[in-house]
Design a protein around this nucleic acid. Structure first.
Lengths: 228, 228
DNA sequence: TGTTTTGTACCGACTGGTCAGTTCAAAGAA
DNA sequence: TTCTTTGAACTGACCAGTCGGTACAAAACA
């Protein structure tokens, strides 16, 4: 093997790691860390988007790395340079999406304090809008959420997304708007799953229906406005 | 091959078809049809169950026919003898499950006529119980429901399962329990997705919690009993 | 009655193709 | 100079589907 002198076989520089940051030259050069101010980040974004699109259509296993690279407009080698493996790319995609969703919901929850029911409403709308914008990600999440392989991601989903719902429901209990003893954990999952399902269905089957209409229906379902 | 004169190459007996019934000897021998009293049907059942288990864990593409055959305790050839292809096996599995679920819900809807809200309650409980019993199928359905490849099955799901929910919601509108103009289609999907998600979550994370408790939470969420 | 034929159901080694991941020299960017 | 990307060839594992063949029960026949 011709490899010059790169240390014992194993892998060469192998940059693709978990790190969101660039690999950080092991030479410790100080300036090197911040590195290519965003070129690499942009490549990763493109790969995330391409992967989400394809995996939403075909599933993880059926989607080839070649196809992802082609759709993203990069060379196959770039995928492995950036992520190291197909699985790591996917794990990164899940994390990235969950983080954004959690951010969107947390922002709503931080908003001007009104009644818990109003906040719940706003959360559902925010989730609906998020999945409307990132439809492929919604499908990927739905399909892969319960696979044992990605339990880490599911855990993050629970602690960062479902927790927002659960907190609001707990507030509602505290405010006397829900019976005390109400199972806020199950209800949080229920609302999340409801919104996720409807968001996907709307995109797939009724793209013309305004998100706001769908949201109104869900709001009516979930609280007392149900009554005529 | 010893088969006498079976026509030009193409496929030989190629039994694996859609038919639920045995292929039925073309010689028309009357007794032959009932054939080996359900042996084949039982093999198919075993294959359905094995496929559902494995696909729930790993997804369709990642599940090999070899693995399905092994888990079912049959030879690989038998899978192709019975279904013709991996895809056809999966399509059969979806159909089979949807048919059973639709049957369970339709039976509830046919029951003694009470208020629409009570029927909605009963439907949710029935769906919860069904997915509790056929957990792997629930996960398969959730994960694969939106893939373009299985649109036929989704259509059947809509016309035979979601329609039951939609009808009850329409009854509720007619009975004045919901505002007229309420979007029963979206709401039906919402309820279905909510129950599906919660059923999977319960099985995966809280297997000890009684289904009835989960149902009570959902019931409170969905209609006016929400109020303290 | 015993024997032969027929068709169903199943078996499992084998094949042809596919794909994740590797390697590497060279070019572009910062 | 160093980091990042390119592009194309290569490998080794893996897998859907095939096909020659077996087992067996129920006709059909003698």
């Amino acid at each position: 093997m011709s490899r010059p002198a790169d240390g014992p076989g194993e892998d060469r520089g192998t940059p693709g790691g978990e790190a969101e940051e660039p690999p950080a030259g092991r030479s410790g050069g100080p300036g090197a860390v911040r590195a290519s101010g965003g070129r690499r980040a942009e490549t990763r974004q493109r790969l995330y988007r391409a992967a989400a699109d394809l995996i939403a259509e075909q599933g993880f296993a059926a989607t080839t790395v070649d196809a992802i690279a082609e759709r993203a407009g990069v060379a196959k080698g770039t995928v492995f340079y950036n992520f190291g493996s197909k699985e790591a790319l996917f794990a990164g995609l899940l994390d990235h999406g969950i983080e954004r969703l959690a951010g969107a919901l947390a922002e709503v929850a931080r908003g001007p304090a009104t009644s818990p029911v109003a906040v719940l409403d706003a959360l559902m709308l925010a989730q609906l809008r998020f999945f409307d914008e990132y439809g492929p990600f919604a499908r990927v999440l739905l399909a892969e959420m319960w696979r044992a392989a990605w339990q880490d991601a599911v855990l993050r989903l629970r602690t960062s997304v479902l927790a927002v719902y659960e907190r609001v429901l707990a507030d509602a209990v505290a405010a006397g708007e829900l019976r005390s003893g109400f199972d806020t954990g199950t209800a949080a999952t229920a609302v999340f799953g409801m919104v996720l399902t409807v968001a996907i269905e709307r995109r797939a089957l009724r793209p013309d229906q305004p998100v706001e209409d769908v949201h109104a229906t869900l709001a009516e379902l979930v609280h007392r406005r149900i009554s005529p």
